[in-house]
Amino acid sequence: PKDEAKKKVKEAIKRGDEETAKRIAKKYNLDWDDAKREADEER
């Protein structure tokens, strides 16, 4: 599900692992900028 994928993307971003985050986002066709902004807001 997309929500689960987005959570994984945000967790990867918070760990500083943007490569993984981008790969997950691409795989699930998520909006990378959107997920990154959300992760930054939660930090």
Score class of each variant (00 low, 15 high):
residue 30 L to W: 05
residue 36 K to V: 14
residue 18 E to M: 15
residue 25 A to E: 02
residue 33 D to I: 09
residue 4 E to R: 11
residue 14 K to T: 06
residue 31 D to A: 04
residue 15 R to Q: 08
residue 12 A to R: 01
residue 23 R to P: 01
residue 18 E to C: 15
residue 7 K to I: 12
residue 3 D to Q: 11
residue 5 A to L: 08
residue 33 D to H: 08
residue 32 W to A: 01
residue 13 I to E: 00
residue 43 R to I: 14
residue 31 D to G: 03
residue 4 E to H: 11
residue 34 D to N: 10
residue 32 W to D: 01
residue 32 W to L: 09
residue 26 K to H: 12
residue 7 K to N: 11
residue 41 E to K: 08
residue 29 N to H: 10
residue 9 V to M: 13
residue 8 K to W: 15
residue 42 E to C: 10
residue 6 K to W: 15
residue 9 V to L: 14
residue 37 R to Q: 08
residue 1 P to A: 14
residue 13 I to P: 00
residue 8 K to M: 15
residue 5 A to G: 08
residue 19 E to T: 10
residue 35 A to V: 15
residue 17 D to S: 02
residue 12 A to I: 03
residue 14 K to H: 12
residue 42 E to L: 06
residue 27 K to S: 07
residue 12 A to F: 12
residue 27 K to E: 15
residue 36 K to T: 07
residue 9 V to D: 01
residue 30 L to F: 04
residue 42 E to Q: 07
residue 39 A to H: 07
residue 41 E to R: 10
residue 30 L to P: 00
residue 19 E to I: 09
residue 5 A to F: 09
residue 4 E to D: 12
residue 15 R to H: 06
residue 26 K to P: 01
residue 31 D to T: 04
residue 10 K to R: 11
residue 21 A to P: 01
residue 37 R to M: 08
residue 24 I to M: 08
residue 31 D to M: 04
residue 34 D to I: 10
residue 5 A to T: 04
residue 40 D to T: 10
residue 39 A to M: 08
residue 8 K to E: 11
residue 35 A to R: 01
residue 17 D to T: 00
residue 32 W to H: 02
residue 17 D to F: 05
residue 30 L to I: 15
residue 23 R to H: 10
residue 1 P to T: 15
residue 23 R to V: 10
residue 2 K to N: 13
residue 15 R to N: 11
residue 13 I to Y: 09
residue 28 Y to N: 07
residue 34 D to T: 13
residue 14 K to L: 15
residue 8 K to N: 06
residue 32 W to K: 00
residue 35 A to I: 15
residue 38 E to K: 03
residue 31 D to F: 04
residue 29 N to R: 03
residue 34 D to K: 09
residue 34 D to G: 07
residue 5 A to Q: 06
residue 7 K to Y: 11
residue 19 E to W: 07
residue 16 G to S: 02
residue 3 D to Y: 12
residue 27 K to W: 13
residue 22 K to L: 09
residue 27 K to V: 09
residue 25 A to I: 03
residue 28 Y to C: 02
residue 6 K to S: 06
residue 34 D to C: 07
residue 43 R to A: 13
residue 38 E to S: 06
residue 43 R to H: 12
residue 40 D to A: 11
residue 2 K to D: 12
residue 25 A to M: 02
residue 2 K to E: 13
residue 31 D to W: 02
residue 36 K to Y: 10
residue 38 E to L: 06
residue 24 I to A: 02
